[in-house]
Amino acid sequence: MKRFALGAVSALVLAATGALAADYPAKEIQGIIQWGAGGSTDTVMRSVTPHAEEILGGTVVMQNMTGGVGAIALNYVADQSADGYTLLMGAENPLLYKVMGLGKKDYSDFVPVNVLARGTPILVASPNAPFDDYAGMMAYIKEHPGEVRFGATGPGGLPSVVTAMIETIEGDLDVISVPYDGDGPALTALQGGAIDVMPAVLGAAIEGIRAGNMKPLALFDVAKSDKLPEAPAVTDFNAAYNDYLPWGPFFGVFVAKDTPADVVEKLAGAYAEAATNPEFVELMNNRGFTMMNIAGAEAESFLSTWQQNTTWLLQDAGLTKTSPEEFGIARPGK
């Protein structure tokens, strides 16, 4: 017993001193990745963190913690002590947990260390689809109601937001919405002809488009991307999209809210520098992500604007369980 007691005491002492930024990191840092191995969040985090480790002079042990659309990982990190030794490596969707009834916590319980990058949505169709661009698709849907099959990834996923955006602007779409687990399986189904149209992230679709296995209908951004110049921007078809775009999923590193400011600063510094590493930038560019690399107040305001826009879009499309108003999320000002 004596040994255990000694161990406990020394742990306490170490934990108390560990909170001081001067010798942070005094022990291993846990990085909890919200999504499974091999996904975009996983790839991004596993490729930026080694650079950050070098700058920090510590070790970040990364673990995938999946389940509950990422809510499990978020709650786990929120429950750990706010000492900067547990990082949450996540994507955009926690900002929708409250309105979708998936959890009671979101990024307002965290401090952003770095919002690394964002993705651009793109509408792609199977090569056999009887239309070649966004305008053609809209016309075809009007002529053939209830026939076109759209891929979906559950309420709150990127396809649901993009579809909500289209319905807000163009009026209701009479299409069949076929649910998949994620955009990977849905894009596979698109190539096999099980669905006709899929709203996806540019990075996930770009190789398939290059090979001619799927065709781009419209890029959901205010301008064309230089990665894929043949895809027209959706604003060229309907200028009303300018109100909602640019919009896209993002990746970020977060720590619990009451983490000492100097620790956050040290982490933010490390990740900000890591995110400028040329290898990492090139990787992100290749996958069609737009680098953001923002922290502090800038990141906070980005997050709250994103949450306002998206939750109200979903609310107006009737996809939410609880109104954003209940959580004090104000309707975005026009």
């Binding site: 255990f4 020394s10 170490l14 022990k27 846990q30 070790t59 042990v61």
Partner: peptide, 19 residues
């Protein structure tokens, strides 16, 4: 690097020390 529950044993400090 499976993070087994550390509980009362200061595992990560210990490992970092050796590292």
């Amino acid at each position: 690097t499976v993070l087994l529950p550390a509980g009362i044993v200061p595992e990560s400090e210990f490992i970092q020390f050796f590292r």
